[in-house]
Simulated scan of single mutants.
Amino acid sequence: MEKLPKFSDLPLNKADPHHSAWGLYGKDDQLGFLNRLTDDVVKEAAKEIQTGTRISLNWPLDAQGDLPFFGRQVFHKNVYQKPPRIVNDDVWTFNTQSSSQWDGLRHFGYQKEAKFYNGVTLDDIHGANKSNVNGIGAWAEKGIVGRGVLLDYHSWRIEQGISFNAFKTESIPLEHLKKVAEAQGVTFKFGDILIVRSGYMAAYNELPKQELAALSKVMPPTFAGVEQSEEMLEWIWNNFSAVSGDQPGFEAWPSQKDYMLHEVLLAGWGCPIGELFDLEALAAHCKTTSRYSFFVTSEPCNVPGGVASPPNILAIF
Rank of each mutant, 00 (worst) to 15 (best):
E2Y: 01
L4H: 04
K6M: 05
F7Q: 09
D9N: 15
N13P: 05
A15K: 15
A15Q: 15
A21W: 03
G23V: 03
G26H: 09
D29W: 08
Q30W: 00
N35H: 15
L37Y: 06
K43H: 09
E48F: 00
I55K: 06
S56P: 10
Q64M: 15
P68H: 08
F69T: 13
V74C: 11
Q81S: 11
K82I: 12
P83Y: 01
P83F: 01
P84E: 05
Q97F: 06
Q101C: 14
Q101T: 13
W102T: 12
G104K: 02
L105T: 02
Y110W: 03
Q111T: 09
K112A: 13
A114V: 02
G119Q: 03
G119Y: 01
G127W: 04
A128W: 07
G135A: 05
A138Y: 04
K142I: 00
G146T: 01
L150N: 06
Y153N: 15
S155D: 15
F167W: 02
A181N: 05
A181D: 02
S198F: 00
Y204P: 03
N205G: 12
P208H: 09
K209Q: 15
E211F: 07
A214C: 00
K217G: 05
M219G: 06
P221A: 13
V226N: 04
S229C: 06
M232F: 02
E234L: 02
N238R: 10
N238F: 03
F240G: 10
S241G: 13
V243P: 13
P248Q: 01
Q256D: 11
Y259F: 12
G268H: 09
C271G: 10
C271M: 15
C271V: 02
L276W: 04
D278F: 04
L279K: 01
L282F: 07
R291C: 04
V296S: 03
V303Y: 07
F317L: 05
